[in-house]
Simulated assay, not measured.
Amino acid sequence: MGPLSDLTVIEMGTLIAGPFCGQILGDFGANVIKIEDPGAGDPMRQWGRSLPKGHSPWWPVIGRNKKSVTLNLRSPEGQAIARTLIGKADVLIENFRPGSMEKWGLTYESLAAANPGLVMARVSGFGQTGPYAKRAGYGLIGEAMGGLRHITGEPDRPPARAGISIGDSLAATHAVMGIMMALHARQRTGRGQVVDAAIYESVLAMMENLITEYDITGYVRERSGSILPGIAPSNVYPAANDEMILIGGNGDTVFRRLAETMGRPDLAADARFVDHAARGRNQAELDEIIADWTRPQALDALLALLEDNGVPCGRVYRAPDMLTDPQFIARQAIVETEHPVFGKIRMQNAFPKLSETPGEVRWPGPALGEHTEAVLAEMAGLDEAKVAALKARGVV
């Protein structure tokens, strides 16, 4: 019973941008009813480097805490049933190409006429308006247009990706923020509204001072690899046995502690490194000095030494490290749940943590259409015979 347990959410759409939005709401108790095509369902059910036992390791996460209902939105009967379900919902999420909902007769205006309090979150590549609105907009395009791709990677190589679908996830997270704002406004007005979350704008919102810096100084930020230009020391450094350590010592007092820990207190008084600006100008030289100190040392000993002296540091985590780390364990950042095919599986927990009404992983992604009959009976008043007839016609 999370803080959103009084909300009913209809999730339409596929892959990550819309479904991650539904995942977050479901984690905190919302009754999320996911509408999927009766054929293959959400393509996320087939994603992954491999499909152990014929099932995707992606789907248990992004499909968690949701109910799966199959419904053919391209058929008039399916559209009518969708309209009935949406009429009893608080929130509708969709991430189809703009124009699809309108083509199916599911415009916000018509839906809100029957359900004035409806909040409709529309997640797309470029938003619902503007000359690019109807273009296909995947996350990688939004990441590039929003400025992230150009500044990610090594200076002498083409732009790199983050390694996850960060553009989609950012758009979904901003959509959740918009949903909660719209629900708050509904308490005063009684009316819902449309939340328009574009992937490229969600990425742009994270770009810190990139636009303003150019506007004022003409400086175009470029790829800088593992550093932020002018912020030093703050980098990844080598340790013994080909391991790596991150050290952040760019504050004046922290840098003095780092220099003393290195047995080089003179560095803090050196004109090249005496303050933030000087260290930024001599970043590469300072990084070489620190790397020469870290390179021969064992990672665990190095971490302990720096931690004892109050210098921010850390290892570069991989999945195995996360599963055994005491901080992850103490805060239950990773939880175990039961999957009908895989058995016990682990995944990241609901976040952020709330002290009184925390979120939780109640169940992993359901089987395709697992809740069709129950939901249609409860919300649309359809008995088994009617659902069977719809199945026979390919509507569900």
Rank of each mutant, 00 (worst) to 15 (best):
M44R: 05
S56A: 12
M44G: 11
L73Y: 13
A30K: 09
N65K: 08
A40Y: 03
G54W: 06
W59M: 10
K66R: 13
S75F: 04
K67D: 00
I35G: 07
L71Q: 02
K34P: 14
P52K: 01
R49L: 12
R64K: 10
P52Q: 02
A30M: 12
S75N: 05
I33L: 06
G54D: 00
M44D: 00
S56N: 11
F28A: 06
R49G: 10
S68Q: 05
D27S: 04
V32P: 12
T70P: 01
D37N: 14
K53W: 02
V32D: 02
W47E: 00
S50R: 14
R64W: 13
P43Y: 14
N31M: 01
N72G: 01
P57I: 08
P60E: 03
G48F: 15
M44L: 14
S56L: 14
V69Q: 07
L73I: 11
R74L: 05
A40K: 15
G48D: 05
T70Q: 09
V61G: 00
A40H: 13
L51H: 05
G39Y: 02
G48L: 14
W59Q: 03
G48T: 12
G48P: 12
T70W: 11
W58F: 15
V69D: 07
L71M: 12
K67Y: 05
P52S: 10
W59A: 02
W47P: 01
L73G: 09
G39D: 07
V69K: 10
D37R: 15
I35R: 05
P60Y: 09
I33K: 07
K53N: 08
N72H: 07
N65S: 11
I33Q: 09
D27R: 14
M44Q: 01
K66W: 05
F28V: 04
V61F: 15
A30G: 08
D42T: 10
I62W: 06
N72Q: 13
R49A: 11
